[in-house]
Design a protein around this nucleic acid. Structure first.
Ligand SMILES: [Mn+2]
Ligand SMILES: [Mn+2]
Ligand SMILES: [Zn+2]
Ligand SMILES: [Zn+2]
Lengths: 142, 142
DNA sequence: TTATAAATGAAAAACATTTTCAATTAAGTA
DNA sequence: TACTTAATTGAAAATGTTTTTCATTTATAA
């Protein structure tokens, strides 16, 4: 269940963040787009309703939302894509042809993580998992 | 078992690549360093024996070696680190404090991959897996 | 209303990576 | 060995993303 802009906003002020027009604008765009958009693309959309906003602010807001676990990030080479975090922990399947992203849950890495902790002595705090391939539409072509 | 510079070189010419002094120099550095170095760091080292080399050539050579599966890449935010690929398919544990990287094998994602293929219709060609945490030396600090 | 720390945004800086293109060169062929 | 040529190189500029700086603005609590 996707959180609403209202819910996110109240969570922010609860955490002591100021509720600025810019933050609301970024949150609105994130909530209303279902793709994993890059900061620049989100910036473009935010500017439609809030032309004076700075790209920096978009970056800062995304960073903040990401730290709070409210949005998720997909890795595409140098670029990042952000979208609302669906329901908690999840990962991505990325089409290397068209860029489509599909979310999935149930990565089931606990056993592996435990083994690695023992073998290496690392205290593991998180992981990055992403599958790459061709989405249904991009198979069969060149 | 780490492949030797000679082995890599002969593989390249076998594949139709020219064996240039620059490529040899990059390969030598990669073979002789056990860290996952960024292109800029590798460039620095290569320049010690080959001062005239261009950073572009380092990038191009790393790209080529990576395509051929001869070196592996670790993802650290925007930067990449490269090192000789140990024995085939493996992944990384990265210390978010000091940057230490540990390799591991046995990611065991086949079952998950199969499930995702069925659920999403993606034709999965590869994956990106990385654990993040604190290495032994960086635990207990701040 | 006032005080104040947080937040903003323009501009510049910092990086990493890629593109361009003229000059060079490895390696096969005569 | 002396060509021939396509591959390779590297300087420079371009690209593109993200961060830093710092003066100005503003949300929020008192
Ligand atoms: Mn997602
Ligand atoms: Mn490795
Ligand atoms: Zn696709
Ligand atoms: Zn460490």
């Amino acid at each position: 269940m996707r959180p609403s802009a209202k819910k996110i906003a109240s969570l922010l002020s609860q955490k002591g963040y100021k509720l600025t027009a810019q933050r609301r604008a970024v949150i609105d765009v994130v909530v209303n787009s279902h793709e994993h958009l890059a900061p620049a693309a989100l910036y473009e959309r935010v500017r439609r309703t809030h032309p004076a906003i700075g790209l920096v602010t978009v970056y800062r807001t995304l960073e903040m939302l990401h730290e709070l676990g409210l949005i998720c990030r997909v890795h595409r080479g140098e670029k990042h894509g952000y979208t609302l975090a669906p329901s908690g922990h999840h990962h991505h399947l990325v089409c290397t042809e068209c860029g489509t992203v599909a979310d999935f849950t149930g990565c089931d890495l606990e056993a592996l993580q435990q083994r690695l902790s023992q073998q290496t002595g690392f205290k593991i705090e998180g992981h990055l998992l992403q599958f790459l391939g061709y989405c249904r539409d991009c198979q069969g072509g060149t």
